[in-house]
C-alpha cells in the first residue's frame, strides 16, 4: 500500500498509486498548505509593515493615556482611545445581542413550527448577507436620526449620572452608541446561527428525559439545553465578538471617527481600530502614520485571531462531543 499521506480513517482500503496521482496529490497538498501560509503571511506582513511605529512608540502605543494622543499632524501616535473605543462598542453590542440571539436561536431550534422554520432561518441569513456598507448608509440617514438619537437622549436623561452615559448625544446621532447598536444588528445573525446549530446538535434523549420528569418546556431549555450547549454558545458569543471588533464600514459611517475622545461615554463620537484604518489610511502622508495605522491592524489581527481560535475550539468541542454521547 503506497499512500502518499497517512490516513487514519479511510474508506479506501489498500489504495494504490496510479498514473498521475503523485502530481495530483502534490497539487492538493500545496493548495492546502497555501491556506495556512496565507494566514502566516497576513500576520507577518502587518507585523513587518508596522515595524517603524513599533520601534518609535514601543509600549506607549498601547499604554493607557488621557491626553490627545492620536496626532497625525505631529506624527505622534498612541492608540489607547481607539482601543478602548473598539472594546466599548463591541462589548456593548455583545451584551445587547447575546440574550436576543439566544432567544431567537431557541425559537428557531426548539419552538418554531416547521412550516415557518425555513423562511425564518433564511431571513436571519439575509440579515447577515446585506453588505456592511448598505448597513452604514441606512445607519447614517435612517437609524442614527430615527433610533439612536432618541435612545441616546433617553439614556442621557435617565442614566446620565453613569460615566457610560455622560454628556449629550450629538444632534446627528453620530456616536459610539450608534456603532454599538448597528453592530448589535449585524452580529445577531452570527450568534443566532451558531447557537441554533449547537442546540440542534443536542441529543433528543436529553430533552425527553427532562420533559418526562415534569419540566416545562422553558425549564427543559433553561436547565438542560443551555447548560449542555454552554461551551458552544460561549463559542458563538466569542465569534460574534470577533465580528464586532473587526466590522469596518458600517461602524466607520456612524461612529464619527473621533480618535481623541478619551471619555468612556457611549453618547460621544469615538473611533474603532478598523474605522481609523478605513478613514485615514488612503490619506496618510507620513511613513510613520501609515506604519501606525498598520500597527492598529496588527492589534486587530491578533485580537480577532485569538478570539476566533478560542471560539472555533469551543464550538468544535460540542460538535465532537455530541455524536459519541448520542451513540451511548
Amino acid at each position: 500500500m503506497a499512500t502518499l499521506f497517512p490516513k487514519k480513517k479511510s474508506s479506501s482500503v489498500g489504495r494504490t498509486l496510479r498514473h498521475g496521482d503523485v502530481p495530483w496529490m502534490a497539487i492538493l497538498f500545496v493548495m492546502a498548505i497555501l491556506v495556512l501560509v496565507l494566514m502566516l503571511a497576513i500576520g507577518w506582513s502587518v507585523w513587518d509593515q508596522s515595524s517603524a511605529s513599533r520601534q518609535t512608540f514601543g509600549a506607549s502605543f498601547v499604554a493607557p493615556t488621557t491626553d490627545s494622543s492620536w496626532d497625525p499632524v505631529n506624527d505622534h501616535f498612541q492608540a489607547w482611545p481607539i482601543i478602548t473605543g473598539t472594546l466599548i462598542t463591541a462589548v456593548i453590542a455583545i451584551v445587547v445581542a447575546t440574550p436576543i440571539s439566544i432567544f431567537i436561536a431557541i425559537f428557531l431550534a426548539e419552538l418554531c413550527p416547521d412550516r415557518i422554520r425555513t423562511p425564518l432561518n433564511f431571513m436571519v441569513e439575509m440579515l447577515a448577507a446585506i453588505p456592511s456598507v448598505v448597513f452604514g448608509l441606512w445607519g447614517i440617514f435612517v437609524f442614527l436620526p430615527g433610533v439612536v438619537k432618541p435612545v441616546g437622549d433617553f439614556l442621557g436623561n435617565t442614566l446620565g449620572f453613569l460615566p457610560l452615559f455622560s454628556g449629550t448625544i450629538p444632534a446627528s446621532g453620530t456616536s459610539r452608541l450608534g456603532a454599538s447598536l448597528i453592530l448589535t444588528i449585524m452580529i445577531i445573525p452570527t450568534i443566532t446561527a451558531v447557537t441554533r446549530d449547537v442546540l440542534r446538535a443536542i441529543p433528543r434523549a436529553q430533552r425527553e428525559a427532562s420533559l418526562a420528569l415534569g419540566a416545562t418546556r422553558w425549564e427543559m431549555i433553561w436547565q438542560v439545553l443551555l447548560p449542555y450547549g454552554l461551551s458552544g454558545i460561549l463559542g458563538a458569543i466569542i465569534l460574534g465578538l470577533g465580528r464586532a471588533l473587526g466590522e469596518t464600514m458600517a461602524v466607520t459611517m456612524v461612529i464619527g471617527n473621533n480618535t481623541v475622545e478619551a471619555s468612556g461615554s457611549l453618547l460621544k463620537p469615538g473611533a474603532t481600530l478598523a474605522s481609523v484604518i478605513a478613514n485615514e489610511f488612503a490619506e496618510a502622508v507620513s511613513k510613520l502614520h501609515t506604519s501606525a495605522l498598520i500597527q492598529l491592524g496588527l492589534i486587530l489581527f491578533v485580537m480577532t485571531l485569538l478570539l476566533n481560535m478560542i471560539a472555533r475550539l469551543l464550538v468544535w468541542q460540542v460538535a465532537r462531543r455530541v455524536p459519541s454521547e448520542a451513540r451511548a
Binding site: M39, G242, G246, T248, G297, L300, F301, T304
Partner: peptide
C-alpha cells in the same frame, strides 16, 4: 481565516 477582519 473567515474570521479575520476584511480590513486586515
Amino acid at each position: 481565516l473567515a474570521g479575520v477582519p476584511s480590513i486586515v
